[in-house]
Design a protein around this nucleic acid. Structure first.
Lengths: 149, 149
DNA sequence: ATAGGACTTAAAGTTAACTTTAGGTCAAGA
DNA sequence: TCTTGACCTAAAGTTAACTTTAAGTCCTAT
């Protein structure tokens, strides 16, 4: 049998969040329709858990909580906000793709740095490796030239 | 002829940072060997610009400034800190790869959401599309089961 | 010579996203 | 029965990473 409601402590473990963070989200209105049981304890149903999943997702793409709040509000407002929500995800997709590219670039830089320091550690010194050291700027040098006025 | 020193304003434009952020980094000791000209204005040379490049890079992988500071300190301390620096990049590589995977997953979710809302906007309502709506939880459901104690 | 613009410092202020504290309720087990 | 642990609220505190403010210097162009 499927469990259909969870305590705040269970949800905290599920998402690896603290109990007080969940209370804070609730307080901020990020978890719509979150009910309480007879003794005032929060009862999280699957809708509430979906909301937290979305929050965590949007947090990971650096969306501030106030924007996440707006998205959640749009959801509650129904069909009139559909185009808002569509453009939110279109924009998100763009920034996400840029971020992915940049992180892949950084990943290459980190790979290089790993090799660089591996050799240096083997040698016991940076001296020998530093001659052919490629600086980060040589790997990516599109930022060097200041915009002319 | 290559320019070999830049003003704070030029560097700010280069990296799309504010002038006060650069002063803050300097104050925090993140830019070693940053000199000033006769009238007390900061003169950024290529070593200083390299440092900022690294800072920006490490910031983008969510490294806090205090850790970046430590890395910069290690650099100044020379060969005795080589293994520290190696393990820093080994760890960075691991977390970076995890992040990349997670972002790709989120990218798929966002793609789905774009399609979802595209259809909804075409229909003028979420009603028809919501029947076969795949929740985020169905796309990724490895967080559902709370850890048993 | 004076006004504007880019620079300087030191210190105070801001913002987001929590986290902690203080004091209280409630249910279960020894 | 009484203590332990999980929950509750409201409010204050924390931290990072800037940003702003206030007061001043220096150079250039009108």
């Amino acid at each position: 049998m499927e469990k259909n409601s969870y305590t705040i402590g269970e949800v905290a473990k599920m998402f690896n969040l603290s109990v007080s963070t969940l209370r804070y989200y609730d307080q901020e209105g990020l978890i719509p329709n979150l009910n309480k049981d007879a003794s005032g304890h929060r009862k999280f149903n699957s809708e509430n858990i979906d909301a937290i999943e979305i929050i965590e997702c949007l947090k990971e793409v650096n969306m501030p909580l106030k924007d996440i709040k707006l998205f959640i509000k749009w959801n509650l407002e129904g069909d009139i906000t559909l185009s808002n929500r569509l453009s939110l995800f279109i924009n998100l997709d763009k920034t996400l793709k840029k971020r992915l590219e940049r992180l892949e670039e950084i990943s290459r830089i980190v790979d290089y740095k790993k090799e660089y320091y591996s050799q240096a550690v083997r040698d016991g010194t940076e001296k020998f490796v530093s001659k052919n050291k490629v600086s980060l700027l040589e790997i990516k040098n599109d930022r060097r030239i200041p915009k002319e006025k």
